[in-house]
Design a protein around this nucleic acid. Structure first.
Lengths: 113, 113
DNA sequence: ATTATATATCGCAAATATACGATATGAAAT
DNA sequence: ATTTCATATCGTATATTTGCGATATATAAT
C-alpha cells in the first residue's frame, strides 16, 4: 500500500467507510444488538453473550467507542456501555446520499445492465 | 484466529457484517457514488475517477459484484457496471433491526450512560 | 493476421485486523 | 493491607485486506 491514500478520497466517503468498517464484524453487530435491547449494558454480560475471550470483546467495544457509536461509563467495579443513537442514526442516514445522487442523475435511461 | 468463528454468530449478523465489509473502503463508496450518479457505468471511467491503479479498481469492483451490490455486463470491448438497487436497499434496510430491538426493549429506563 | 484497447486475473509485498494469553489497573470486599 | 473481581491493555501469532506490476483474455480496428 502506498502512503496515506486516504487523502485522495472525499471526507464523506472516508467517514462512511470508517463507519462501515466499525460494524464490519459479526461480533460488533452482535454487541450493538445486545445494547439496543438493553438486556444489559454491563460489559461482563456482553462477554458472556459472545463466543469470544474477554480481551477480544474489550477490543471490539473499544473500536465501537472510538468511532462514537457507543458510550461507556465506569460504574464502580464494572463498565457500562450503551448506544449513542444520535451518532448511530446520523451514520445510517448517510446511506441516503446514494438515493439522492440517483434521483438527481441527468440521464436515468442510460443504463446498460 | 481460530477455525471458522463465523458459525458462532447468527446468520443475519454475519450478513450485515459482510455488507458492511463490502462498503468499508472509500474506493468502494466512491464507486457506488459514481454508479448512483450514472455519470457512466463504464469501467474505464470509474478507473479514471479514482486515485488507484486499474488492477486495484477491478478488484474493488469484483468485491462489490460478489456480494451483489452491483451488476456487470460485458459490452463488446468494455465492461459496464450498475447498482442493484434491490440488493442495496435490502441491505440498508437491515439497519432498522436496531431501532426495532430498542423499541421492543422491556426496560427502556435502565440506561447507565 | 497483426495490433491496439479494455478489463480481469495472478503473484507478491506491505498494511491492517483479529484473537487471545498474560498482565496491569483500579474499585470493592475482607 | 490484602485479596478478589471486572475490565483494559500489551505482546504476539495468524489471517485478511489492499495495492500494483505483470500478464492473460478477448474484442475491435487496421
Amino acid at each position: 500500500m502506498a502512503i496515506n491514500r486516504k487523502m485522495d478520497f472525499q471526507a464523506d466517503e472516508i467517514a462512511l467507510a470508517d463507519f462501515a468498517k466499525a460494524i464490519a464484524h459479526p461480533a460488533r453487530i452482535a454487541i450493538l444488538k445486545i445494547l439496543a435491547q438493553q438486556k444489559s449494558c454491563i460489559c461482563g454480560e456482553i462477554v458472556e453473550g459472545l463466543p469470544l475471550a474477554q480481551a477480544t470483546v474489550s477490543q471490539h467495544l473499544k473500536e465501537l467507542k472510538v468511532i462514537g457509536l457507543i458510550k461507556g461509563t465506569i460504574e464502580g467495579k464494572t463498565s457500562c456501555y450503551c448506544i449513542d443513537w444520535e451518532v448511530f442514526n446520523a451514520f445510517v442516514g448517510q446511506f441516503g446520499v446514494f438515493a439522492e445522487l440517483a434521483q438527481n442523475a441527468p440521464n436515468q435511461s442510460q443504463s446498460c445492465c
